[in-house]
C-alpha cells in the first residue's frame, strides 16, 4: 500500500513552485528588453518595475546603487544574494528534485540538474541583450520540456497533484504581481505615456505568454477592461487567474483531507466570479489585487497546515 509522506508532498509542491517561478522570472526579464525598445528613451520606465514585481525592492536597494539594466538583470538572474533569482529558483528546484528521485522518474532530476548547470554557465556573466534573450529562451524551453515530461510520464498520483498545485499557485501569484506593478504605470495618467498604453498592455500579455491568445479571442481595439477581463477571468487561458484556481480545485479534489483548502479555493473562485474587473481602475484595481494576493497567501498556508506541517493531534491508541 503506497502512502504519500508529508515531506514528499511538500517537496513536490515546491518543485512545482520553483520551476514555475524560474520560468516566470526568465520571461519577465526577456520581455522587458522588448518593451524598452518600443518605448521612447525619455520615458521613466526602465528596469526597476521588474524588481518591484518580484517584491524584492528593499533587498535590491540594499545591494545596488541604481536600477540599471546590468544591475537589475544580474539581480534577477544570477545574484545568489537574491533568494528569488532565477539561479536560486533553479537550485532549489534541483534540491527538491534530488530528494524526489525515488518518486519522480530518474530523468526529471537529470533534466533539472542539466538546466541548473546550463543557467549557471550561460547566465552568470553580463551578456548582450541578444545573447541573454537567447539564453533565457533556452531556459524557458527546457522548463516546458520538464513540464511536458512530467505530465506525459509521471504517475498522476498525489505527488503529481501537489506539483501542479505548486505550479498554479505560483502562476496566479505572478499574474497578480505583474498586473499590479505594470498597471500602476499605466494608470499613472501621465499624458505623455498615453500613446504607448497599447505597447504596455502588450508587454503585460507577453509577460504572461498570452499575446497570441488575446489576438485570437479579441477583435476590438485593446482596452484596460478587455485585457483585465482576459487575464483574470478567461476560462481557457492557461495563465488566467480563474484558470489557475480551477486547476488547483481539480488537483485538490483528488487529494485526501481536502475540505479546508478546497473551501479556500472555492471562496476565491466565487470572489473572482462576482468581481467586475472591467470596472477596476487605479486604486480599486490595486485594492482588488491586494485581496487576491492575500487570498493566495492564505491558500498556501492552509495547504501547508493541512498536508505538510500539520500539528499532530494526540494520536489515539491503535489508529491507522
Amino acid at each position: 500500500m503506497s502512502r504519500t509522506l508529508s515531506s514528499t508532498a511538500k517537496r513536490s509542491y515546491w518543485l512545482g513552485r520553483y520551476l514555475e517561478r524560474a520560468e516566470n522570472t526568465a520571461r519577465i526579464v526577456s520581455v522587458n528588453a522588448n518593451l524598452l525598445i518600443d518605448l521612447p528613451v525619455r520615458l521613466p520606465l526602465g528596469w526597476q518595475p521588474l524588481v518591484d514585481i518580484t517584491g524584492a525592492d528593499d533587498l535590491f536597494a540594499d545591494i545596488y546603487e541604481d536600477p540599471s539594466e546590468t544591475h537589475v538583470v544580474h539581480f534577477l538572474l544570477s545574484d545568489l544574494r537574491n533568494p528569488g533569482s532565477l539561479f536560486n529558483s533553479l537550485s532549489s528546484a534541483k534540491e527538491n528534485a534530488r530528494t524526489l528521485r525515488g518518486i519522480l522518474s530518474r530523468e526529471v532530476f537529470e533534466y533539472v540538474n542539466e538546466l541548473q548547470l546550463y543557467a549557471k554557465q550561460t547566465l552568470s556573466e553580463p551578456l548582450s541583450r541578444t545573447r541573454r534573450i537567447e539564453g533565457l529562451s533556452r531556459v524557458m524551453e527546457r522548463i516546458r520540456q520538464i513540464d511536458g515530461f512530467l505530465s506525459g510520464n509521471m504517475l498522476h498520483d498525489a505527488n503529481w497533484n501537489f506539483l501542479r498545485i505548486g505550479n498554479f499557485i505560483e502562476r496566479a501569484d505572478m499574474l497578480t504581481r505583474i498586473v499590479d506593478v505594470r498597471s500602476s504605470d499605466l494608470f499613472a495618467e501621465q499624458a505623455e505615456l498615453e500613446p504607448f498604453q497599447d505597447i504596455q498592455w502588450r508587454s503585460i500579455l507577453r509577460s504572461l505568454s498570452a499575446m497570441q491568445s488575446y489576438n485570437v479571442t479579441h477583435q476590438e481595439p485593446m482596452s484596460d477592461a478587455a485585457v483585465l477581463g482576459f487575464l483574470f477571468k478567461h476560462q481557457d487561458l492557461p495563465r488566467s487567474y480563474v484558470r489557475c484556481l480551477n486547476q488547483m480545485r481539480n488537483s485538490l479534489k483528488s487529494l485526501p483531507r481536502h475540505e479546508k483548502p478546497l473551501r479556500s479555493v472555492n471562496r476565491m473562485r466565487r470572489n473572482i466570479a462576482s468581481e467586475d474587473v472591467s470596472e477596476l481602475h487605479g486604486t480599486t484595481l490595486h485594492e482588488f489585487i491586494d485581496r487576491c494576493q492575500h487570498e493566495i497567501a492564505q491558500l498556501h498556508d492552509t495547504i501547508d497546515k493541512t498536508y505538510f506541517d500539520f500539528k499532530p493531534r494526540r494520536p489515539r491508541r491503535g489508529t491507522s
Binding site: 502512502r3 515531506s7 483531507r257 498536508y307 499532530p312 494520536p315 491507522s320
Partner: peptide, 18 residues
C-alpha cells in the same frame, strides 16, 4: 513521530499512520 501513547506514527498527507 512518537505519540504520547508510545506508538510510532509517520506523517502522511492523510494524517498520522501507525
Amino acid at each position: 513521530i512518537v505519540g504520547r501513547d508510545d506508538f510510532v506514527y509517520m506523517r502522511t498527507i492523510e494524517g498520522l499512520v501507525r
